[in-house]
Deep mutational scan, measured.
Amino acid sequence: MFKRLMMVALLVIAPLSAATAADQTNPYKLMDEAAQKTFDRLKNEQPQIRANPDYLRTIVDQELLPYVQVKYAGALVLGQYYKSATPAQREAYFAAFREYLKQAYGQALAMYHGQTYQIAPEQPLGDKTIVPIRVTIIDPNGRPPVRLDFQWRKNSQTGNWQAYDMIAEGVSMITTKQNEWGTLLRTKGIDGLTAQLKSISQQKITLEEKK
């Protein structure tokens, strides 16, 4: 169930391209415009997507990853294993993690069937560096609404905000991946996880038929 919630949630996290980005210092504006741009692209490019579902990787690479804190999220997933990894191991892992996100997020976007969304009203940021933004996803086919909290983090150097995690039903996506990959990290280390991520990233994206 959580895996499905995570995939549905990713439908609204794909941010804007650099040329049309919203105010990078306001995570609420980023979330709002990102959702609108993403849904528009999914709707307008269905012919290309249906002809070649792996085209979704391109959308992810162009529109999402430049505005997601990939390395920060990847380091959180590694936890204690990050500090013990060599620079070469980290570089290989982050490259594999990025390719994994292209496949995983692309597969999530393949679930698009006309969903709509509501974003919580903007709250004062103050001096906060981590801000959760509640998004409610509404399914046109009558499924119950899904309420999610996207975690946005302020870059201490640039002042810009980027998304790095999502919490559904009190469970963090980062925590879920830590639990899912924990045994592999304990037995085969970061190299074993890197190899698995490379394998997963090679899987073809498949479209979910409308139910």
Rank of each mutant, 00 (worst) to 15 (best):
Q178E: 02
P121E: 13
Q24A: 09
T176I: 00
K211L: 08
Y67D: 04
L148Y: 08
I137P: 08
Y82S: 01
D40G: 15
V68Y: 03
L16D: 04
I130W: 04
L76H: 01
T86C: 09
I200Y: 13
V171P: 00
F150S: 00
M166G: 01
E45K: 07
R4Q: 15
M1I: 04
A92R: 13
M31T: 03
F94M: 15
T20N: 11
G106Y: 03
D23K: 10
L42P: 04
L78T: 05
K188A: 00
Q80T: 14
G126K: 14
P132R: 09
N141R: 07
Q89C: 11
D54Y: 10
K188Y: 08
T58G: 06
Q203N: 10
T183E: 09
Y112M: 04
Q162V: 03
M166E: 04
Q36C: 15
Q89H: 10
N44T: 13
M7L: 10
L5I: 07
L193T: 13
D32E: 08
D149Q: 03
D23Y: 11
A21R: 10
G182P: 15
I137E: 15
V146C: 01
G126I: 09
K211T: 12
K71E: 05
F94D: 02
P15I: 02
Y82M: 04
E209V: 10
L65D: 03
I119Y: 13
I200K: 07
K37E: 08
V171K: 06
Q48A: 10
R98Y: 08
A95C: 09
G79P: 00
K37P: 12
E122R: 12
Y164P: 03
E208K: 07
I167Q: 05
A88N: 13
G79T: 03
T158E: 07
Y82D: 02
A88T: 10
P132A: 00
Q203A: 05
Q162I: 08
N160F: 01
P15D: 10
E45C: 10
A110C: 12
V60W: 01
Q196S: 10
N155V: 00
L197V: 07
L65F: 15
G170A: 00
N155T: 04
E208H: 12
L207H: 15
L16H: 07
D32A: 12
A34W: 14
T116D: 15
N155W: 02
N160D: 09
K43D: 13
A34Y: 14
K188G: 09
Q48D: 11
K29S: 15
T20H: 08
Q24G: 09
F2G: 02
Q178Y: 04
Y164L: 04
A92Q: 13
P47L: 10
T86M: 11
P132D: 04
P132C: 02
G192N: 12
I119V: 06
Q69K: 04
L42E: 05
E122W: 10
T206W: 11
M111L: 09
R57N: 15
Q36K: 09
M173C: 00
I190H: 11
A73M: 06
T175D: 02
R147H: 01
L30Y: 06
V135A: 00
I200S: 05
E63Q: 06
Q151P: 11
L125A: 00
E180S: 00
I190Y: 10
R41E: 05
M166K: 11
W152E: 03
F39N: 01
T175R: 06
F94Y: 09
L5T: 02
K128G: 14
A120N: 09
L5M: 06
T116S: 15
E169N: 03
A96S: 12
I138R: 15
N141G: 14
Y28E: 06
K188Q: 07
I167T: 14
Q202P: 11
Y105E: 01
D32L: 07
T187R: 07
K71L: 01
N141H: 06
A168N: 08
E208R: 15
T116F: 11
P124C: 12
D149Y: 04
A168Y: 13
R90Y: 04
Q62C: 08
T136A: 00
F97Q: 05
I190L: 07
I13P: 01
Q69N: 14
E99A: 10
T25G: 10
Q48R: 11
N141K: 07
Q103H: 11
S201E: 06
K83R: 09
M111Y: 11
N26K: 07
P145T: 06
T194Y: 07
G126E: 12
E63S: 08
D61N: 09
I138A: 00
Y81M: 09
E99F: 09
F150P: 07
R98Q: 14
Y93P: 00
Q115E: 01
I13R: 01
L65K: 05
V171L: 06
Q196G: 12
L197W: 14
W181K: 15
V8F: 13
L42M: 13
K154L: 09
R90H: 08
Q46R: 06
S84E: 12
G74S: 07
P145F: 11
K211C: 11
N141A: 00
V68S: 07
D139R: 14
Q162M: 09
K43I: 05
D54K: 09
L193Y: 12
T116R: 15
K102H: 11
K128Y: 07
Y67H: 05
L184N: 06
L78Q: 07
E180W: 06
F94K: 12
E169F: 00
D127R: 12
D32S: 12
Q24Y: 08
Q103G: 15
R134S: 11
G106D: 04
L125S: 14
L64T: 06
P144E: 15
Y28M: 08
K188S: 12
T25N: 09
P66W: 05
T20C: 15
N26T: 06
L109D: 03
A22Q: 15
Q89R: 06
T206E: 10
Q24K: 13
A21Q: 13
Y100V: 14
S172F: 05
L148W: 06
I190G: 05
Y82Q: 01
P124H: 08
I59R: 02
Q162N: 06
I119S: 15
D40M: 10
L185A: 00
Q151V: 00
Q107Y: 07
T86E: 12
M166P: 01
L30V: 05
I205N: 15
L207I: 15
A51R: 10
A18L: 15
P121T: 08
G106F: 03
Q24R: 12
I59L: 07
R134K: 02
L148S: 02
Y82I: 02
Q48P: 14
L207W: 15
V77T: 08
T116H: 15
G142A: 00
I137H: 11
R147P: 01
A51M: 10
M1F: 00
I174S: 02
T158R: 08
Y164T: 03
Q196W: 07
M31R: 01
I13L: 14
E91H: 09
G192V: 06
Q48M: 11
L101P: 03
L16N: 04
Q107F: 12
Q80R: 12
T38C: 07
G74Y: 01
G189A: 01
L101I: 15
Q89K: 07
D61K: 06
T136Q: 12
G159H: 14
T158N: 05
Y28R: 06
E169S: 00
P140A: 00
R186F: 00
I205E: 13
Y112D: 03
Y117R: 03
V146Q: 06
K211V: 15
A51K: 13
P15L: 05
W152M: 02
G170F: 00
A168M: 00
P144I: 05
D165H: 00
A120L: 13
A35T: 12
A195N: 10
K188L: 07
M1H: 01
E208N: 10
L56H: 08
D61L: 04
G114A: 00
N26R: 05
Q202N: 10
E122L: 10
K204D: 10
R153H: 00
Q162Y: 03
M173Y: 03
T136G: 14
M1P: 00
I133L: 07
Q24M: 10
Q89G: 09
I119R: 08
P15A: 05
Y105K: 01
K210T: 12
R143A: 00
L56Q: 14
S201N: 14
L11H: 01
I119W: 13
S17H: 06
E45W: 03
T194S: 07
Y67F: 09
P140H: 14
A21E: 12
M111V: 12
H113W: 14
